[in-house]
Simulated assay, not measured.
Amino acid sequence: MQRVRLHLRLGWLWLALFIAVGVGLEALHGMKVGAYLDLSQAPRRHMWTLAHAHGTLVGLVHLGFAATLHAWPGLEEAGGVRLASRCLIAAGVLLPLGFLLGGVWILGGDPGLGVLLVPPGGLLLLAAALLMARAVARGVERGDP
């Protein structure tokens, strides 16, 4: 139950944070801020949009993770859930942060070095999904609800 609460907190926190990022990006767009909308700033705009989208996605995945564990209390016994939880938490930091930092320092039209955090974050998110899929499959095999 402690893991359920942790992922509920993180999910709603991530959603609130990255909805706020989205509102901020819309404000920059609405106020026609050149540092965001100029053609030369396209990589920044793209990176920050990806940070918003991936942060929001990870927030929803946290909520789905928590809902799965809540609906299936014995699932953690299937193994891999603890590691999946850690992978999801790390992915939730690395993915949006990598895109955000990649957009802060644009180097000749390319994203900044912060974007190097994105591939490990993506792999951690994939690992979390695969670990949970395996845990669910094992739970089904045992005949759990």
Score class of each variant (00 low, 15 high):
Q2F: 15
R5N: 12
R5H: 14
R5Y: 14
H7R: 08
L8E: 14
R9Y: 15
R9F: 15
L10P: 07
L10Y: 07
G11Q: 08
L15W: 11
L15T: 07
A16I: 10
A16G: 09
L17Q: 08
L17C: 11
F18P: 03
F18D: 04
A20D: 06
A20P: 02
V23M: 14
V23C: 11
G24H: 10
L28Q: 13
L28N: 13
H29A: 14
H29P: 10
G30S: 13
K32R: 15
V33N: 12
V33K: 14
A35I: 06
A35Q: 13
Y36I: 00
L37C: 02
L39C: 00
L39S: 12
Q41D: 12
A42L: 15
P43C: 10
P43Q: 10
P43W: 04
R44E: 09
R44F: 07
R45C: 09
R45W: 10
M47P: 07
W48P: 00
W48E: 05
T49K: 12
L50Q: 15
A51Q: 09
A51N: 07
A51D: 06
A53W: 03
H54N: 13
L57G: 09
V58T: 11
G59I: 03
L60V: 15
L60S: 06
H62T: 04
H62Q: 00
H62S: 07
F65V: 07
A66Q: 02
A67D: 05
T68N: 10
T68W: 01
L69F: 04
L69D: 06
H70V: 00
L75K: 04
E76Q: 13
G80S: 07
R82N: 09
A84D: 05
L88V: 10
L88G: 03
I89W: 11
A90N: 05
G92T: 09
G92A: 09
P96M: 03
L97G: 05
L100D: 01
G103R: 02
G103T: 09
W105N: 13
G109W: 06
G109T: 10
G109L: 03
D110M: 13
P111S: 01
V115W: 01
V115M: 11
V115K: 02
L117N: 00
L117M: 11
V118N: 07
P119N: 07
P120D: 00
G121F: 10
L124A: 04
L126K: 02
A127R: 05
A128F: 06
A129D: 08
A129G: 11
M132T: 04
M132N: 09
M132H: 03
A133P: 09
A135I: 11
A135F: 04
A137E: 11
G143Y: 12
